[in-house]
Design a binder for these strands. Structure first.
Lengths: 202, 202
DNA sequence: AGCATAACTAGACGCTGACAAGATGGCGGG
DNA sequence: CCCGCCATCTTGTCAGCGTCTAGTTATGCT
């Protein structure tokens, strides 16, 4: 886990952050190992020593992403255990780390069976479900049905994030996606639970 | 539009369908123009005459996809103008044409400014919003707010489709995604509108 | 001090997308 | 009828990519 300083310093982490930045800028398909090596000022084969192959690098990137997401979701839950705010946290993560987020849900790009990745993904899923379990709202649904509502909520916020990132929405939601999501998610969630966190309107 | 028969027959369409199949099998990143040409039994540079470049082929594929989606949504609306069934149609399309669907929302892969593509995308969006406008339900929301609910519904079904396709869901929903979605979407939509289409349960 | 080894370099291979220049064949104007 | 035109397709070429192999440098342990 802990990386010492070697010739470069910490090439592994430099490559990962450079990759996240490059993907956020110009998409994952135009990412090149050799270009990453160039940015880091090392030879074209140097990355191969830290990551078995390109999929290995993306596996590490996705793993980091799931860990960060799990942490963010856990923090959000403690701050204000609101289903709506949990969704906003999810969206904020997708926007702030769009390169990493893009890779996380492209299982064809990395080694999906990697144990570290699976563990991190599970931890993020647990954080998500945990945040939904002790909802401040939704007293109307039985415990069994919580799972269904959780899938619906996850689907909605994930779909909103991906659609917005791909520019599929009309400009209405393009200005401030977080605020737009707060209104949209809030409308469904509050109607569902009968509890009104009152996003902002009177 | 209409393609005559030439040396190959109809290479353009053959390439597009082969591309959709190949992407559905092994992802868009492992798609190769040369492999497509090999499958069609032509030389490696033949595709270049029908599509300016790889992005051009994917642009055409996405355009076809949006046209098909618009058609499917329109048909669904006529068959049973239910918001739930419209969502199911959307999901069915994503599952049946997962290769095409994957490309449609990856704007970094194709020429996003292509006029034909923009027109097809707009037509699909219109079909989606039209299907939501004359809902059988949702009498509680004002006409302005229909747009917000539409975005929420679109986000939810889109998110469900992409999450399922990426294998992110626990196995619970993995068996029959359409039925699972019917339950999940129905739970939110019916609670929202106060109308119960009663998916299947007693 | 010396050495095993992690970290990196240099070179090569087959593959890819893209470009240029030549071959092939159907169709309309003479 | 046939002849030239042009869309279609082929062959050849190029730089760049991911990956493999072999060789080089520098670090930390004994």
């Amino acid at each position: 886990m802990t990386r010492q300083r070697y010739h470069h310093g910490d090439l592994r982490r430099a490559l990962l952050s450079a990759a996240a930045e490059a993907i956020a800028e110009s998409g994952v398909n135009s990412l090149s190992m050799r270009d990453l090596a160039r940015r880091a000022g090392v030879s074209h084969a140097a990355p191969g020593h830290h990551f078995a192959d390109k999929a290995g690098l993306l596996t590490a990137l996705a793993t980091d992403g799931f860990q960060q997401l799990a942490k963010a979701l856990g923090t959000s839950r403690l701050a204000s255990n609101s289903l709506l705010e949990l969704g906003v946290t999810y969206l904020r993560f997708a926007l702030a780390h769009r390169g990493t987020f893009e890779v996380m849900f492209r299982t064809d790009l990395y080694h999906a069976a990697d144990p570290d990745l699976l563990a991190a993904r599970q931890r993020a899923a647990d954080a998500l479900y945990a945040g939904m379990a002790d909802l401040p709202d939704a007293p109307a649904v039985a415990s069994e049905e919580v799972r269904e509502v959780a899938l619906a909520a996850w689907s909605m916020v994930h779909g909103f994030a991906t659609l917005w990132l791909s520019g599929a929405f009309p400009d209405s939601a393009a200005e401030d996606p977080v605020e737009a999501a707060r209104v949209i998610l809030g409308r469904v969630f509050t109607l569902h639970a009968g509890v009104i966190p009152s996003p902002e309107a009177s």
